[in-house]
């Protein structure tokens, strides 16, 4: 019997409730809760946002407003590999835009989208802070620097 009951409880939900409990009595709990929830689920599905609203008594519209305001929060699942293309000033000056074009053409997706096979999600970000290596991209937090358009295909091939 006991195993059957455990199966009914979503382990992610348990983690989420722990995160909410940890933060909800402190000041300004919303953003840490959302960050924790996104770590658990990989993104912020609507039912999670509604659950957080109920547990914290913060109106769901306000939470949705916060989720859509900050670049960190995502409402769709991320692909198996996350490509962050840096378009900081240093990267821009050293040809970052061409890296973006090449990757977009190679994967046939635009900024913010995920390939149909779920292999890559593409995000253009403002600055990784690795300006000395410009232009740079990072795939799954692994930084590739001093890039040229022709080196892209080889790098992408390493990620399944």
């Amino acid at each position: 019997m006991s195993t059957a009951c455990e199966e009914l409880v979503d382990p992610k939900q348990i983690k989420l409730d722990q995160i909410i409990d940890k933060h909800k009595h402190g000041n300004g709990p919303l953003i840490p809760i959302l960050q924790g929830a996104q770590e658990v689920y990989g993104y912020l599905p609507a039912h999670v946002i509604k659950h957080i609203s109920k547990a914290t008594r913060i109106p769901v519209a306000r939470i949705y407003g916060v989720v859509t305001f900050y670049a960190q929060f995502r409402q769709t699942p991320v692909g198996r590999n996350l490509i962050n293309i840096c378009l900081g000033t240093a990267c821009h000056v050293r040809g970052g835009a061409k890296i973006v074009e090449t990757i977009e053409k190679e994967l046939k997706i635009k900024d913010g989208a995920t390939t149909e096979d779920g292999r890559f999600t593409l995000e253009v970000i403002a600055c990784i802070g690795a300006c000395g290596l410009a232009p740079v991209i990072s795939i799954n937090n692994e930084v590739h620097g001093r890039l040229l358009p022709e080196s892209i295909a080889g790098i992408l091939a390493k990620y399944e």
Binding site: S53, P59, V60, I63, Y64, G65
Partner: peptide, 19 residues
């Protein structure tokens, strides 16, 4: 509190949660 802003910049909208 049914309504709030969502998104930002030029894409800012007003509406209920999840628009």
């Amino acid at each position: 509190s049914i309504l709030d802003f969502s998104h930002r910049g030029f894409d800012t909208q007003v509406g209920p949660a999840f628009n």
